[in-house]
Design a binder for these strands. Structure first.
Length: 553
RNA sequence: GCGGGUGUAGCUCAGUGGUAGAGCGUCACGUUGCCAACGUGAAUGUCGUGAGUUCGAAUCUCAUCACCCGCUCCA
């Protein structure tokens, strides 16, 4: 990576902290990896981004291909859903198992094909892995259980462990396993309750038999240690922490939309083609969060699921799914460009061949070249998902092979709608906006400034009396009060005018109005442009109109 | 997850075993007439956290947390 872009990233991070865009979460306690807070300016910026998206995609969407209008509606779904949702979507099944990779041929296998969970009970909880290992050598195993059972049949697994540890089943409440990723040893957390419902928690060290004694069945190569691949955060619904109460924080907002597809169709008089949009938090327990806010464990998505008629049911007049896909791809690219992501750093990339999910007919990642990497990183994926999602939920929820099919009166046909999914990261676009806006011009007295699109700027205008005397503050204050009725604005009469301009430059405020000596004579004030530093005079009565004109882009 | 590096004021950093520091920023007062001006003053520190060694630790040792870099991972 070029060191100059790395240095730029550090400057951006420093500015974001200095001016209150982004803070590390829980910083006073040493932080927590993968979580971030937005400060006062960052909160406004992100809110503006979400508002712009909601306005441009949902409330006032563009006209479709061939001049076709379509409907867009919104939902706001719960973060915790019935766990069956995630079984249907494939988030539980496909990626919940610890996996091992062959170091030679790169093949991947489920770890339970190679490993057994060996449970030894010792009295105290050791402090370190090395401690644990030395303890384990001295203690006879109490159980030797195929690790697979934990995932394929949690209740049976629980029973086996209870029996091995002589815990009577009725008092057993919960079981957590940790340590697979730590190289094969870890602990079982066991919560029990007695007759009086007094809870107690204890930890039992366990050893997952090393995979090093196994070889790759395909090429006889060396295998890695098992690694846990489920990125979903788990929690328990209800006071009892029973395995049957396990639920997940959603890893994407899309499934809430699919799960409500019928509800929306039945309640809002929408007709195919139409879209359902949602903005909301999602959670992924990333193994290795990195690159500032780019890969966070808690993040916000802006997703559209657009439902359209499958090609085989389209009349000549209908827009095909592939046309809708291309339409949304282009709409989304133009949207970023319209909000000042104009540099060649914005790079749409069509996925090819193996990269596509098996159900996906086409997908474009809209990528941006952040200063922290030599490679472009995904801001948004626009995917043609066929009928996969609605079919999956149809099978799991209704037991029907044809999924959530609808009867289309106009086309006299029954079908499962196809889905085009533009799925954008609100935090990623916020970060891209910050990186793109960050500008250094050494010829300026205040070299660093943020060239935000006026629509996204956290503060739209500032009002300054040139000096805090001679009646200037008294003229400035009413002007400020008028402006803040219209737009987020700031008033500042302290310190030198240059320092006040510099502060607004770093906040990315597009316009500063200054009341000076001439104001009293001819009622004009100066407007300073953030990007050029140029000043022009306008009458103080026209400030509102000036801003309305400049900001209604 | 592995390996390497870093952690002292809001920021950038100095401080190698003996009183916690500088510049910038922030705030106050004064001054100031258009771009981080000037003067005076002030506030801001669990020296990342915890243990150990020592008469004494920001400094040495260990652990831990966070961040950065490289692998790995990113459905």
């Amino acid at each position: 990576m070029a060191t100059d872009t790395k240095a730029v990233m550090e400057k951006i991070v420093a500015l974001c902290k200095r001016r209150g865009f982004i803070f590390q979460s829980s910083e006073i306690y040493g932080g927590i990896a993968g979580f971030w807070d937005y400060g006062p300016l960052g909160t406004e910026l992100k809110r503006n981004i979400k508002d712009a998206w909601w306005n441009d995609m949902v409330q006032n969407p563009p006209i479709g291909p061939r001049g076709k209008e379509f409907q867009m509606v919104g939902v706001d779904c719960s973060i915790i859903m019935n766990p069956k949702v995630w079984e249907a979507s494939g988030h539980v099944g496909g990626f919940s198992d610890p996996m091992v990779d062959c170091k030679e041929c790169k093949a991947r296998f489920r770890a339970d094909q190679f490993s057994r969970l060996v449970i030894r009970q010792i009295n105290s909880v050791p402090k370190t892995i090395d401690d644990l290992r030395s303890h384990l050598e001295d203690v006879e195993p109490k159980a030797d259980i195929l690790a697979e059972d934990h995932f394929s049949d949690p209740q049976e697994y629980t029973k086996q462990i209870c029996s091995a540890l002589r815990i009577k089943k009725p008092t057993f409440e919960a079981l957590t396993i940790s340590g697979y990723a730590a190289g094969g040893s870890g602990s079982l957390g066991i919560l029990t309750s007695d007759k009086n419902e007094q809870f107690s928690y204890r930890q039992v060290p366990v050893l997952l038999d090393s995979t090093s004694k196994y070889r790759c069945p395909r090429c006889n190569g060396e295998l890695t240690e098992p690694r846990q691949f489920n990125l979903m955060f788990q929690t328990y619904v209800g006071a009892l922490q029973d395995a049957s109460c396990i639920a997940y924080l959603r890893p994407e907002t899309a499934q809430g939309i699919f799960a409500n597809f019928k509800n929306v169709m039945d309640s809002s008089r929408v007709r195919i083609p139409f879209g359902i949009a949602q903005i909301g938090k999602s959670f992924r327990n990333e193994i290795n969060p990195r690159n500032y806010t780019f890969r966070s464990r808690e993040f916000e998505q802006m997703e559209i699921e657009f439902f359209c008629t499958p090609e085989e049911h389209c009349t000549d007049d209908d827009v095909t799914p592939m046309e809708w896909y291309e339409f949304w791809r282009d709409v989304r690219i133009k949207w970023y460009e319209s909000l000042n992501i104009k540099s060649d750093k914005l790079r749409p990339r069509q996925q090819e061949g193996d990269e596509l999910a098996h159900y996906s007919k086409a997908c474009t990642d809209i990528e941006y070249l952040f200063p922290f990497s030599d490679e472009t990183q995904e801001l948004e994926g626009v995917a043609h998902r066929g009928c996969y999602d609605l079919s999956q939920h149809g099978k799991h929820a209704k037991g029907k092979e044809d999924g959530f099919s609808i009867y289309d009166d106009e086309r006299k046909a029954k079908y499962v709608p196809h889905v085009i999914e533009p799925s954008a990261g609100a935090d990623r676009f916020t970060l891209a906006t910050i990186c793109e806006a960050y500008t250094v011009d050494e010829s300026r007295p205040s070299p660093e400034f943020m060239r935000f699109h006026p629509r996204l700027a956290p503060i739209k205008a500032a009002v300054f009396p040139l000096v805090a005397k001679d009646g200037m503050p008294e003229i400035a204050e009413p002007i400020f009060r008028e402006i803040k009725k219209l737009y987020p604005a700031q008033f500042d009469s302290k310190q030198s005018i240059g320092k006040r301009y510099a502060r607004m430059d770093e906040a990315g405020t597009p316009y500063c109005f200054t009341i000076d000596g001439q104001t009293k004579e001819d009622n004009t004030i100066t407007v300073r442009d953030r990007d050029t530093g140029e000043q022009t005079r306008i009458s103080k009565e026209s400030v509102g109109n000036f801003l309305r004109e400049k900001l209604s882009i």
